[in-house]
């Protein structure tokens, strides 16, 4: 309860910074802070396993991915963002404030007083459930992650590479398709091609 009261304002402040900061890198780093504070909150609530998963997946992978994307795209100066901010804030508030009002009204109206006993997330039970009840879902997520990995790798290659042969060479099956000249040629370096426009 104490940790909740301490962490909740910190999370809100960090999230506010992530939303409001005009400089993109600052926003991304504050997102990482928000997510790691959220992981700390999970641990404080007794779901330590999920807190660690949050640290590893969100902070370790997603936030770093976003920072890398910012490094690659090199967004322009934040002056433009600040200049057009007065125009965008009002419609944004008009759309979000009613939502906040409805949600807070629903929360304030009827939340039962919860049971006071402490709970700890049983990790053994999670493993058991993952391999019995949720086994189909685990398989589906595995297929999804594989598809995402392949899709992202194909997206990251140069734009003209969406052929069967390129796909095969991306998967390392050049010999079977009979393209010996590309087998001994080194893979093209990771670089941006010249613009087509």
């Amino acid at each position: 309860m104490i940790s909740l009261l301490i962490l909740a304002p910190l999370i809100l402040l960090a999230a506010l910074g992530a939303v409001w900061k005009a400089r993109p890198v600052h926003a991304a780093l504050l997102l990482a802070l928000t997510l790691s504070l959220g992981g700390a909150l999970y641990i404080a609530l007794g779901a330590g396993f999920l807190g660690l998963v949050q640290f590893m997946v969100y902070v370790g992978a997603v936030a770093v991915l976003i920072v890398f994307a910012l490094l690659i795209t090199r967004p322009r100066d934040e002056t433009e963002e600040i200049a057009r901010r007065p125009k965008s804030v009002l419609p944004g508030l008009l759309c979000t404030l009613p939502l906040v009002a409805v949600l807070l009204y629903a929360v304030g109206r009827n939340v039962a007083e919860p049971a006071a006993e402490a709970k700890e997330l049983p990790i053994e039970r999670i493993g058991e459930l993952l391999f019995t009840t949720h086994a189909p879902a685990v398989l589906a997520v595995a297929v999804l992650l594989t598809a995402v990995m392949l899709g992202a790798a194909l997206f990251a290659r140069e734009p003209k590479s969406f052929g069967v042969r390129r796909l095969a060479s991306a998967l390392g099956a050049t010999e079977e398709l009979g393209s010996p000249q590309s087998a001994d040629k080194p893979a093209p370096a990771f670089q941006n091609p010249p613009t087509t426009k």
Partner: peptide, 22 residues
Amino acid sequence: PLAILLTLSAVLFALGLFAVLT
């Protein structure tokens, strides 16, 4: 405490939506 958590979650969601919109 549940009400605090739900409030935090509601405001976080609204902040995310605000970022998406603006």
